[in-house]
Design a protein around this nucleic acid. Sequence first.
DNA 1: TCCTTAATGGCAATGGTTTCCATTACCAAG
DNA 2: CTTGGTAATGGAAACCATTGCCATTAAGGA
Lengths: 160, 160
Amino acid sequence: MPRGNGQGPMWWHGRFRGCGYRITVGREAILDVLTRADKHLSAEDIYIKVHTAYPAIGLTTIYRTLEILVNLGLVFKFDFGDGRARYELAEGSKRSAHHHHLICTDCKRVIDYTDFIDDEIELLKQTEKGLSEKYNFMITNHLIQFYGLCDKCRKKKGGD
Amino acid sequence: MPRGNGQGPMWWHGRFRGCGYRITVGREAILDVLTRADKHLSAEDIYIKVHTAYPAIGLTTIYRTLEILVNLGLVFKFDFGDGRARYELAEGSKRSAHHHHLICTDCKRVIDYTDFIDDEIELLKQTEKGLSEKYNFMITNHLIQFYGLCDKCRKKKGGD
DNA sequence: TCCTTAATGGCAATGGTTTCCATTACCAAG
DNA sequence: CTTGGTAATGGAAACCATTGCCATTAAGGA
């Protein structure tokens, strides 16, 4: 069933095999769900979606596969503060242009934004360069999140 | 015992009382530990330190107090990816100039850096302004973290 | 097709954090 | 200085996302 959705002939197979990982039905299903999803999903979200098509696949496999994907850099793992991790396909795969997150600390809603990204990326590059040199750190990734109250929660809280 | 360490006459008492919270020995001890600490502590770290001076204070109280402090904006809560939250006093209190974090994904070491902060803050301000307007979001806080391998772990992994 | 071994699934275990509830102790009022 | 209402507390149990364990299954090279 997960035939790549016409989105290219299993772009990740090579990367997977190259690292000695086998291609399995479960892994294809998980990648398929991640590819279709246009927003961050929790492990359980993914489990539920995969489960409808492949009831045999267990939650443990979801976690194990996600760990591999994160390590391979194919998937990003986020913590939005509600106690469960969220996953989304790294850019370069298909969907999902590079974006950052705006998180409502009240209702936990998450907004992806791509505005201002160019300037942010530019600064990040410079900062990463400076930091790598000064601390002899090999930077592979970054996280930028803004926290606050979304419009709805602002109103709920009364006025400002 | 926690007499504010001569660092000012309980700067947080007013803020606390103003919100209807009572001043208790446990809370003073926790604030004291946070004030002395110059790095991020886990709830358990704090518990252990508080516990030596006040064995009667339980872990539950640590968590409850930290939650209040975070809500009041007196303390920041971080997730460095090792399964336990870290807390540190917000700037404006005493120590801790504004800084961001550099996290080793291998050994979980965390480096605080203040370099480049000025440029980052400048850009963040602009971005926050733009985002607030566009999404009608009241931004109260931000999180910037860089992930990668620290010098030691780079060597361990073999060269580059 | 066969065989080695990675991958899997179900369930138990883990561990940080939260909930519950009876008890304690702030602290404003008298 | 007492008193009383109620927030705060602690200890243990509950929670719950995530991980470990192990016997079973199946990828995929030979």
